[in-house]
Nucleic acid binder design. Structure first.
Lengths: 341, 341
DNA sequence: CTGTTAGCGCTTTCAA
DNA sequence: TTGAAAGCGCTAACAG
């Protein structure tokens, strides 16, 4: 008689495997985890029955027993963000090949939601969480770090189980502005982000300081409030145009707003860069292919994601970790040129 | 003497809460889950100590005990994809307010990786998985569906614990092509996707059939192979231009390639839409703000994500579920116009 | 090298 | 309404 083909794939447990292979559960566990030497005969027997039953150990049960979930929470702001998306990819890549996997949750730039997400991650007993900027206070972050390893971007904090990587938004904006100044522009408009957004604040400061350092005081009429979205950039640009202010260049505090501004310009038949120079910030994947290709400040988001994940792995291993922020880079493409005189 | 402030936040378990509140663990559990009536006095006492200890029940343990994880696996292709990103958002939104949360994993359009991801999800005992297209065979899908609820996009399958939503790529491409034909174009180039990609194949078929139905046989010289990426679109466009073929319109099988093609045209000072009409496919968020705003076929990805999640919830509840695919829509913007004669 | 025995933290009968 | 006890599927001493 042939061996009975195993049909009831339901509920295959480690105990079942042990029984079928004629060994104890511990032995199966040891083979699964390589946690101790096991005789070859038993190993083969067990591996066979595992294959035969297509057995997948229950990670929940394992986590419960080991007190570790091998899961790293990742608090991002919008799961569909083209910007943070790159960071998520960096995290995924860094974690591939390790036993850890990421658990992505979105905070929507909303303190309450971020707190709720953090609670969820804690309830799931993640081994650590990577926080991509967001609105949690430094104090809260420090508090969390008392309970589990935390890696946070966009901050400059230090604590035992905490690693952070700040980004020099100020410097990036300074450089971008200086680039325009170097091209001879003196009337440079700035489309800013939400005024309670830390990145927006820093970028504005960089813009103002660069002007100041060049002996060109900034004028409030050339600073347009907006919201980091394409629509906001477009609106701001229209408003600027209607104000009849004199200007030869526009620096948008992010690429998305630059896209919007570009469209507003197009609508009025104003050419870029012939008539107006345009600079963005972030270097979204699309900016290479925008019309014209956009001069912008490249944020190494992918690398930041990767480094954040690597730092988390170290923290989990009980080691100290600090992240050397990869440098920002001004990417000069075709949307800027020397001012007409 | 004041009550001792609770410092040792470490390892707060349900048992601890029970002990502190002077009740049994079962009572605490009942309160947590509302699974039975509990006297008000005890309820208050328990809720107090829960708050006092900031207790978060361990979801792993709960899952183990209940045989449910309240987690829905989502197999996407690239976590940073601007296209699938919208679907993820739809899923997130649909699941918000339910006890379920999504667990996102990436398959990278790679069969082996997708299989590995599915294994991971099964090991984590997700309650179901939503598969966004990908390369798993129908047979495999059906096999998975025997073990747990599956919702899959881009297929037309039916089985007890399986819901699918196919997208009419053929029809969308047909309409887009017809739009160009209606504008008087007869020499319409097509930039196609990978030839083993089901969506690419269907879109090509739609293009060819629309031409045929209009009495305009398609010519191989006007069909350019590419890869669904900006760079590929750009390359294809350059090649087409160099071939000195005669054409007045280009239909790219996705927006990303249309962006690349647009740039190639710009490089040669060919205007869109004055000289050449351009149509994309997908209606990525960016296409509203591209230069000029791109005529394209809108895929209701957000809705598909939302509906997929809703269907999953029904499947989990043991109900049948089918998804009515929301219709595609040709979005006519500014990159197409009547052919010059 | 291997099996036995306790748990991990929660839910859920079953009685009381 | 409540508590005791058993068990979810796995790991980890501890003997042998």
């Amino acid at each position: 008689m042939e061996a009975f083909p195993q049909l009831s794939e339901e509920h295959v447990t480690l105990d079942l495997i042990a029984r079928e292979a004629g060994v104890s559960p511990s032995t199966v566990s040891r083979i699964l985890n390589g946690s101790a030497r096991v005789s070859d005969t038993k190993r083969v027997a067990v591996e066979d029955t595992i294959a035969r039953f297509n057995f997948q150990p229950n990670l929940m049960a394992r986590s419960l027993a080991m007190g570790q979930t091998y899961t790293i929470g990742v608090l991002t702001q919008f799961i569909e963000s083209p910007f943070y998306g790159e960071a998520l990819r960096g995290i995924e890549d860094a974690l591939a090949g390790t036993p850890y996997s990421p658990l992505f949750v979105s905070g929507h730039w909303n303190l309450k939601k971020e707190e709720a997400r953090m609670r969820l991650l804690q309830a799931r007993r993640v081994d650590g969480v990577i926080i991509l900027t967001g609105r949690l206070s430094d104090q809260q972050l420090l508090k969390y770090a008392q309970r589990l390893p935390i890696v946070v971007t966009g901050r400059n904090l230090s604590a035992p189980k905490l690693a952070s990587v700040a980004i020099d938004d100020y410097g990036g904006a300074y450089d971008a502005t200086k680039h325009l100044i170097d091209l001879g522009h003196t009337r440079i408009a700035f489309i800013t982000g939400p005024d309670d957004h830390p990145d927006a604040i820093e970028r504005l400061r960089g813009y103002q300081t660069a002007l100041h350092d060049a002996g060109l005081e900034w004028v409030p009429e050339l600073i347009l409030p907006a919201d980091f979205l394409e629509s906001g950039g477009m609106l701001a640009m229209h408003r600027l145009l209607e104000s009849r202010q004199n200007f030869t260049a526009v620096f948008a505090a992010n690429d998305q707003m630059a896209y919007g501004a570009r469209l507003a310009l197009y609508r009025r038949n104003i050419r870029v860069p012939e008539d107006i120079s345009l600079v963005g910030y972030d270097d979204l994947p699309n900016s290479t292919y925008s019309m014209p290709p956009l001069t912008t400040v490249r944020q190494p988001v992918y690398d930041i994601g990767r480094l954040a994940a690597l730092a988390m792995l170290k923290l989990i291993a009980g080691e100290a970790a600090d992240i050397a922020a990869p440098p920002l880079e001004l990417v000069v493409r075709e949307s800027t040129r020397r001012v007409r005189r």
